[in-house]
Amino acid sequence: MTQSVALFVTCLVDMMRPRIGFAAIRALEAAGCDVVVPQGQTCCGQPALNSGDRAHALALAQQTIAALEPYSAIVVPSGSCAGTIRCHYPELFEGDADWLPRAQAVAAKTFEIMAYLDEVLGWKPDGVRLDATATYHDSCSGLRELGVKAQPRRLLAQVQGLSLTPLAGEETCCGFGGTFCVKYPAISNAIVGEKADAIAATGADLLLAGDLGCLMNMAGKLHRDGSPVRAYHAIELIAGMGDGPAIGEEP
């Protein structure tokens, strides 16, 4: 039976790496989903929330809830945005008799994409091949707020020819942290420097993760260091789009 889902694209994917959105649609359709991209969606409000701008975070959350609540499931190619909707929207509207039930309803049907494909649908990619060695970074929000850890690894294990090698400190922050990297650039650069060294030490061809912000941060540092490691969102490989330009290589 076809499962109808709404894809919350995220700001970074929409503006910086649209092919992640197309990969998400491709994988969801292969898993038997009818995918809708709601036109009213915009920022989930996470940057405002993280910066203490509660008024703008509330306004963006209300707009997002209104755009997404008609759908039976919402799938997000980002642990941080999915975590904001699923974990923090109900906190934002605590005590609000009108908006809290709406926030809770949307939160309950919001999923990070790899968790949705693996846990909810029980889907496995079929006929996908990429001869390469990859290492995987666990983004903070996806790991700690949503428990996304084994799901992407199970899906990636089905990609023929792909070998996963462990990353030392795979659960350690990359230094991006949304607005953290803007407010504290020196600290952020030191953190991502340690992460880049750990990535290089794996000898992997590819760096994978589930959050574009983390990937852009790490890919940028690797590029500045002259590293040949190429970065992709894991859903790109899972959807059979791992042979295209890596993050930072787009024309």
Results as ranks from 00 to 15, higher is better:
residue 188 S to D: 04
residue 218 M to Y: 03
residue 105 A to V: 08
residue 141 S to N: 14
residue 96 D to L: 07
residue 89 Y to E: 08
residue 74 I to N: 13
residue 127 G to M: 03
residue 91 E to C: 00
residue 150 A to K: 13
residue 151 Q to E: 15
residue 88 H to A: 02
residue 193 G to E: 12
residue 200 A to D: 15
residue 158 Q to L: 02
residue 212 L to K: 01
residue 143 L to A: 13
residue 21 G to P: 09
residue 38 P to C: 01
residue 223 H to T: 15
residue 211 D to P: 04
residue 68 L to S: 01
residue 59 A to Y: 00
residue 63 Q to E: 12
residue 23 A to E: 08
residue 106 V to D: 02
residue 125 P to R: 02
residue 237 L to D: 01
residue 38 P to E: 02
residue 130 L to C: 07
residue 104 Q to L: 06
residue 210 G to H: 01
residue 193 G to V: 07
residue 32 G to P: 02
residue 243 D to L: 02
residue 236 E to Q: 04
residue 117 L to W: 01
residue 54 R to N: 09
residue 169 G to F: 05
residue 100 L to N: 07
residue 189 N to A: 15
residue 146 L to V: 13
residue 115 A to G: 09
residue 50 N to T: 14
residue 165 T to P: 02
residue 9 V to I: 14
residue 81 C to H: 05
residue 136 Y to H: 05
residue 1 M to N: 12
residue 37 V to W: 02
residue 50 N to W: 02
residue 167 L to E: 10
residue 15 M to V: 11
residue 139 S to C: 09
residue 41 Q to V: 03
residue 150 A to W: 04
residue 210 G to T: 15
residue 145 E to D: 14
residue 185 P to H: 14
residue 62 Q to G: 11
residue 183 K to A: 15
residue 49 L to E: 03
residue 126 D to V: 03
residue 182 V to T: 14
residue 240 G to R: 05
residue 247 I to L: 15
residue 170 E to K: 05
residue 34 D to I: 00
residue 200 A to W: 02
residue 167 L to M: 10
residue 62 Q to Y: 00
residue 194 E to F: 01
residue 239 A to H: 12
residue 167 L to R: 06
residue 31 A to D: 11
residue 141 S to Q: 11
residue 128 V to E: 02
